[in-house]
């Protein structure tokens, strides 16, 4: 319930070719107040989905046309990072393993325990949220970084590498005072309160 309030726009996308499975999943997931959208095939899903939408994907492995694994592959290739939960039938274990390797965050075997499924969904949604937050952070940082001059870039890299002002001055062949000035500029442009913060930013940006 809390989840639904925390992520009002999050949607659980269900892709399964079996009508009964789709409607039963919708029925179950809607019981915890989450929005559900069902698609009979991977193609139908791709037609309707656009990358900006938050949520997670419940994906049946075996489907006519584009299968679950293929869809996953497609999403990876197009850098769509929606968290994927794989639904498998009995005897599809090797396939599920493959899916996990491909980056699915969970897999659930049919018939499934509802708590397990809902926990997995919650988990996936929080991952999605996290991803989205990080992504927005990264975007922010990237915009800040773009403000830096090439020299300031160099200074920032060296600072976050743990080099002292003196070492930097030596390396760049400028005075320590100049480095100090550059550094202050960097701190200001990156809106970093402390060195530790700047280091974290640098790490996040380099991911």
């Amino acid at each position: 319930m809390n989840d639904s309030q925390a992520q009002p726009q999050s949607t659980v996308f269900v892709v399964d070719d079996d009508e009964a499975m789709r409607s039963s999943l919708q029925w179950l997931i809607e019981s915890v107040g989450l929005a559900v959208e069902c698609y009979a095939s991977a193609e139908a899903f791709l037609d309707a989905y656009y990358p900006g939408r938050s949520g997670c994907l419940l994906l049946d492995v075996r489907m006519p046309g584009m299968g679950g694994l293929e869809l996953q592959e497609y999403l990876q290739r197009h850098e769509i990072h929606i968290p994927v939960i794989i639904i498998t039938g009995h005897g599809d274990v090797p396939m599920s393993v493959r899916a996990m390797k491909e980056g699915a965050i969970d897999f659930i075997e049919k018939p499934f325990n509802d708590e397990l499924l809902l926990d997995a969904i919650r988990n996936a949604l929080s991952v999605d949220e996290q991803q989205r937050w990080e992504q927005s952070q990264r975007a922010e940082l990237a915009s800040r970084l773009s403000l830096l001059t090439p020299r300031e870039h160099e200074v920032m890299e060296m600072v976050t590498d743990g080099k002292s002002n003196k070492e930097i001055a030596n390396a760049l062949g400028v005075s320590a005072k100049t480095v100090e000035a550059h550094r202050a500029k960097v701190m200001d442009k990156m809106q970093a309160g402390s060195l530790a913060e700047l280091v974290r930013m640098s790490m996040l940006a380099s991911q």
Binding site: D18, A20, M21, S24, E30, S31, H90, G91, D114
Partner: peptide
Amino acid sequence: IAHELNQPLSAIVNFANGCARR
């Protein structure tokens, strides 16, 4: 057969769980 049976059984479980929760 087991595989094919899984489909309706899963659906049944989902529907039942959804009902129970509601």
